Simulated assay, not measured.
Amino acid sequence: LFGKKYIVGGNFEYETELGNIKDGKVLKLQGLSQKHRIETTKMENMLSYNIFASLNLTEDFSLLGSYTSTKSKEYDSDSLTIGGKYKFNSVGDVVNTYFDNLSGNKNDRWRGTVNILLEAEDDSDRTYFDMDGNPYPGDYAASTLYVPKLTMSLNDLKSKWSYYFEGYYKDNEMFQGLKTNEAEQHATRVHLEARWNDTFSRGRYGINIAYRNETSEKPQNYGKKGFREVKRGVHQIRLTPNFIYNLGNGFALNGSFTNIYEYNYIGDKEGQGDFIMENQGGIDYSGLMPRAFMRLNLFREDTWHDHNNATERKRLTQIRPTFRYFFGNGAYTQLEARFPIYNGGYSNETRTQIIKSENYETRYGIKYIQPLAPGLTGTIGVTLLTIKAKNKATG
């Protein structure tokens, strides 16, 4: 195309729902005399397709574009992304090469990419209703959301550090104005991350350190009462160490530990500090047969919500086994499962240790991935899921 290198591609997906989660589900809650219907978007016979393209205008600069459309009986979503990608081989490429040229030296320590994108999201305008036919509290239908976004990755070739930046602004008024009776909504994100990774004779280890600021202002529908603005503003500090240690004879230890401290400075949770941990680790085994890989991990998620010193704690504990077999031609099959242990997922008051609610999720899944042609891959899979819930507050 115009004598330049280009990439074009696309994918097509079909999804449907089976079983008792179809068309919403009516539950009678204990302690209440009336039934409450839990509305769910009908995901039956959902068709989705994506088209993407990249055109190299120069060796280092490319134009990017993609379009995604998803449709079903009650869901309609379209997303468009356009922008450019710049690959630089030295800081002088993006800052100023003048002093490099004067000295006769060029700083070749850094490598990285910069992406400048504009995303347009037009999601479902579906209205939710309660049992009396009144609009049900939930998402507020809006015009197209436009999202200018900047991402940058930077690698230091003379150390084990790399860096990542992401920032965006989301708005439903940009380029188009607001519809009649539509309320403004917007969101922002600034994410800065430093990553350190190293290898040794028996594996690898590393840590990611990040700061994130997010703000949002979004209307929430309350039926005949209209809507109210829901505001949110948070500061986050994120620490994520990880490792793999080879024990020999096909065995290896793995671990990944995500720790997030979040302080809410705007919104309903103003002044609240939350601490979230999502840790998993276990053992890998690849000695059963040359093309087989097995992993058995313990997953644990802990959340401490500080409600003005009335602290609540949420926990989730699961065993997650995985088995993957490679067929040698790029195809493989994967079996995976999740089993609850201890109290499954539950919440309790920290001071009294009284468990308020419990839920137990069991999941079985299998998928098969097969390369069909250069640039074309097919995937088929099935997941079986059961959830049992118990609310102690209502008996």
Rank of each mutant, 00 (worst) to 15 (best):
W161G: 06
S162V: 02
E121V: 11
D108Q: 05
R111W: 04
Y86G: 03
T81E: 06
Y86F: 15
K160D: 11
S62L: 09
M46K: 06
G84F: 06
Y128H: 10
D60H: 06
I82R: 03
L57R: 06
L55I: 01
T70M: 02
E166R: 07
E121A: 10
S124Q: 08
G84N: 08
Y164S: 13
G84K: 11
Y169H: 08
G104F: 05
D139F: 12
E119H: 13
T70E: 01
N56P: 04
F99E: 07
L102K: 06
N56M: 05
E119P: 02
M131L: 13
T144W: 00
L55V: 04
F88M: 04
V94F: 04
S72A: 06
S66Y: 01
Y169F: 11
Y168S: 09
Y67W: 09
P137N: 05
K87S: 11
N56E: 14
F52W: 15
D78K: 14
Y164M: 06
L157V: 03
K149H: 00
S159M: 06
N101Y: 05
G84W: 06
N105A: 07
S143I: 03
L47E: 09
G112Q: 03
F88S: 09
N155I: 14
K160I: 06
S159Y: 06
L80R: 02
V147G: 00
N50H: 03
D93I: 01
S69G: 08
T144R: 00
N56H: 10
V114N: 03
D122T: 07
D78T: 14
L102G: 01
F165H: 09
Y146R: 01
L157H: 13
V94P: 06
D125Q: 13
E74C: 03
Y128S: 10
